[in-house]
């Protein structure tokens, strides 16, 4: 093999390395753009809560779960993922308004996604998982548990009911619940 061939090999290797690095850089730039311009972060609250006390905690006691419009107008839904159901099973949220979903688990690892949206998070015992989103599609959306949580995992599924903003009417305590169908 001649010296010239060897140099040609090195040159093409370098060319290719540049292409590879450029391809990866484009993807990174897209992620950075989304983070800055669209405030897109993965759900990463690092907010601790004792799972052994979850049902006694002020925020995640049974009667405090579901959708609530806070005094400052912020719309928050609090949902517990437990073996083998979401509590409450059905949550009402308005379309086209920023909403915050807060999840926690008293027992084992769960996870969830809401079909057709970018809502997707793990629910790890010991932490509050928080998702911020704006729901665009109205109707009953599936909210299945997507992480193995025991033998009843397959049946663990909830509903996010997205209603047009005008039909979203909180009660005097700021709470909204699914009407029975």
């Amino acid at each position: 093999m001649s010296e010239a061939d060897e140099r040609a090999i090195v040159r093409s290797e370098i060319r290719w390395a540049v292409v590879a690095i450029a391809a990866v850089s484009v993807i990174m730039l897209a992620v950075i753009f989304a983070a800055i311009a669209m405030h897109i972060n993965p759900p990463s609250n690092v907010e601790r809560i004792n799972p052994q006390d979850l049902h006694l905690s002020a925020e995640f006691t049974e009667a405090n779960l579901g959708t609530k419009v806070e005094a400052n107008g912020q719309i928050t839904a609090r949902i517990v993922a437990t073996q083998f159901a979401f509590v409450p099973r059905c949550v009402v949220l308005p379309a086209d308004r920023p909403v915050t979903l807060r999840f926690s688990s008293p027992d084992v690892i769960h996870g969830l996604l809401v079909s057709g949206t970018n809502v997707n998070t793990m629910v790890v015992p010991g932490y509050v998982s928080q998702v911020h989103t704006v729901l665009r599609k109205t109707g009953d959306l599936l909210m299945p548990c997507h992480e193995y949580c025991g033998l009843g995992h397959s049946e663990m599924s909830g509903t996010i009911r997205v209603v047009p903003s005008a039909q979203f009417r909180p009660g005097p305590d700021g709470r909204v619940a699914c009407a029975a169908k």
């Binding site: 983070a35 405030h39 897109i40 972060n41 759900p43 990463s44 609250n45 690092v46 907010e47 601790r48 002020a58 925020e59 006691t61 049974e62 009667a63 405090n64 806070e70 005094a71 400052n72 912020q74 928050t76 915050t100 807060r102 509050v128 928080q130 911020h132």
Partner: peptide
């Protein structure tokens, strides 16, 4: 705790 890009909701509950 909380996201650097989003406000934390207030917690006001006793039940």
């Amino acid at each position: 705790a909380g996201s650097p890009a989003q406000p934390q909701p207030p917690v006001s509950a006793t039940a």
